[in-house]
């Protein structure tokens, strides 16, 4: 086994065995993906929060629900989650109201169902890819560890052929192998942090949506 003098980062990766290099490549890919999702979630959550604040302000300052509904429809592509929930509820409410002979509780049940369906869809959209972050956070350290164990096994097998074993014979191999663990941790730590943070923020958003739905139901019930 060749004893390398230069333990720079590139040589460490370049000298590793094929399997360890594969593991490193996989981890790099996973890390890139998870960071992509992290930034996507960051923008999405931030945008949703901003749109919710704006819509709630508009909702509580306007008395005319028709105007709000028309606004929501005209800007459907740009509408926030809360605006879409409102639009679905209001649409269902007006449809049911036009039908004569329905009592109030039936109208309100239909409206709630419509809003809940939209709410579920919005939550699903917000929570997409979060499970990927959770998986990366829990699995990628093990993947890195697997690469490390494999690399260290190889380093010790190389040691068996050497008559006089010194630390210098195994050290480069172990250093190479440990890069895999480092990369696994590098992928895992941000993913775990992001997962915890975004699941918490999405929880808060969902509470907000649910309370809005209740309040909006009350407002509709008061409608003549």
């Amino acid at each position: 086994m060749e004893v390398t003098q230069d333990l720079s980062f590139i040589t460490l990766i370049g000298n590793a065995s094929v399997l360890v290099q594969l593991v490193m490549g996989l981890l790099l890919l996973v890390s890139l993906l998870s960071w992509w999702y992290i930034f996507q979630k960051m923008f999405a959550v931030r945008l949703t929060l901003k749109q919710s604040v704006i819509f709630e302000q508009a909702f509580w300052s306007h008395d005319d629900l028709d105007v709000l509904y028309r606004n929501a429809l005209s800007s459907r592509e740009n509408a926030g989650s809360l605006e879409r929930i409102f639009a679905a509820g209001f649409e269902e409410f007006t449809k049911l109201k036009r039908k004569s002979g329905m009592d109030v509780s039936a109208v309100m049940d239909g409206t709630r169902r419509a809003m809940r369906a939209t709410y579920q869809r919005e939550m699903d959209h917000l929570e997409s890819h979060l499970s990927f972050l959770a998986t990366v956070g829990s699995v990628s350290p093990y993947v890195g560890l697997f690469g490390t164990v494999w690399g260290i096994m190889n380093a010790f097998r190389g040691l068996a052929n050497v008559g006089q074993a010194t630390l210098a014979h195994v050290a480069p191999g172990i250093a190479e192998a440990l890069v895999a663990t480092a990369m696994g941790l590098f992928a895992a730590i941000p993913a775990v942090v992001a997962y915890n943070r975004y699941s918490h923020e999405i929880d808060r958003l969902s509470t907000r949506f649910e309370s809005f739905m209740e309040e909006f139901s009350n407002v509709l019930q008061r409608q003549p």
């Binding site: 890139l32 993906l33 960071w35 992509w36 999702y37 992290i38 930034f39 996507q40 960051m42 923008f43």
Partner: peptide
């Protein structure tokens, strides 16, 4: 349909 205008910037940031 959900607009995702932040896909490319997110990839660039990653």
């Amino acid at each position: 349909t959900y607009r995702q205008p932040y896909r490319t910037p997110a990839a660039a940031l990653a």
